[in-house]
Nucleic acid binder design. Structure first.
Lengths: 229, 229
DNA sequence: TATAAAAGTTAGATTAGTCTAACAATAATG
DNA sequence: CATTATTGTTAGACTAATCTAACTTTTATA
């Protein structure tokens, strides 16, 4: 049985290698900073995960997941996302409240519980932030996704998910009317300071690259990520 | 914020002092044995709980709860019993499966979550074992209860709760048809070996004092614990 | 009431997870 | 390519929760 800490490390490694996927490996310092621990701590822990055959790792090298490590990490994420969905759809939490509570619920180790909850929720495909929910084997289809920052000017597109789950970010989106399913158009992109003017509904809002790079969209006409509309 | 361990100690002290209530204090060894730790461990821990002002305690003395300790212990029990009810009524777990999972869920610290869950469940008064659920202040009406072992011969009575939540015990009850709400009659009580013959529905079953002392009942005619029917 | 049994404590060790401070290896850059 | 910056490691210390082994206090009983 994995400890909370071990599960959090695996989850963080999945995020860096599978999801934010520039590379399938991650550095110890990077890991330390996502987990809010000092590099020394992460360095120790990575060696412990290696001994348990959950990660591949060599001294001064990068960290990547073994088959088993990936499976277990994905199951933590499955639990997290199913609980978020439950809190949002069944208990009427708002989308900025669910993450924090799910951080605790995700460590409850009962496969049966998660399968029953999944059934109760009607086998949802996505959590309240639009992220896909892994199946009970820890498998998931990771779609190639586009952010608003990569979207060409004038082309309507539809919001399908958000990457950042922080309360501040999600409340900000609520304020400017940006929700999952909303249609947005990049009205203007200022090269000088990278600010983007976004049309959401009827209203134009100027947003930062920090925002645009955290909102995933598909083409508004064909619904695909890569299209020629 | 309390640790899992601290919460488990408080819960155990509540069980011994408030619920199994012969006395409002409990010994260190007794505590150690319910928590499956060595006396030395419990002795240390009790001193830590005292420093946090959760228990009253003096060297070589007994342990009892402070106001705060009792409140926090009762809230753990509230969470446990609400989750049990959720697992049983919403996710269709059987009554012998709920306890184990609830042991993990009870440590999720979110008052809002519990209040919303309570609302979702329709403010249940009792968990699947017939035990009362404390309110969000940690308060509860502890009824004076009678067990089958105290019931007089020939008098029909109704099962309202069970004390033991172990899988073995609950499956045994299922097998002999003894459920919450069932009517039972003590047909015969053998003084020599304390075995009791119980009529459950149409069938007579011989049971031990271990069983009879773990099943709570009320009078079958008037529904009260103390009656003159 | 003296002694044995039960209950409880203390000292010293262990493991998981964390830290700081000093050091070492690798990568980036003038 | 030498120097600096970044990244990662090691050593030593700390806390929470546990253990064993030896010891002490309280309680029960012969």
């Amino acid at each position: 049985m994995l400890s909370f800490t071990e599960e959090n490390y695996l989850k963080a490694i999945v995020q860096h290698t599978l999801f934010d996927g520039i590379s399938d490996e991650v550095g110890v310092n990077q890991l330390a900073s996502t987990l809010n621990v000092k590099p020394a701590t992460a360095s120790d822990m990575v060696r412990r995960l290696k001994k348990k055959e959950l990660v591949h790792y060599e001294r001064y090298g990068k960290v990547s997941l073994t088959k088993q490590g990936q499976r277990l990490g994905m199951l933590v994420i499955r639990r997290h996302r199913l609980w978020e969905t439950f809190l949002y759809s069944t208990l009427n939490f708002s989308w900025d409240e669910v993450h924090e509570v799910a951080e605790e619920l995700e460590h409850v180790h009962s496969g049966k519980l998660m399968d029953r909850l999944d059934e109760f929720l009607g086998y949802p495909e996505f959590d309240p932030h639009g992220e896909a929910i892994p199946n009970c084997e820890g498998e998931i289809k990771i779609p190639f996704r586009m952010t608003v920052s990569e979207m060409s000017v004038g082309k309507p597109c539809k919001v399908i998910a958000v990457r950042d789950e922080s309360v501040d970010f999600l409340r900000y989106l609520d304020r400017i009317g940006l929700a999952i399913g909303a249609t947005v158009v990049v009205v203007h992109r200022e090269e000088y300071d990278e600010l983007t003017t976004l049309r959401i509904g009827e209203k134009d809002t100027v947003v930062s690259p920090k925002l645009t790079s955290n909102v995933y969209v598909v083409c508004g006409s064909c619904g695909k990520t890569k299209c020629s509309c």
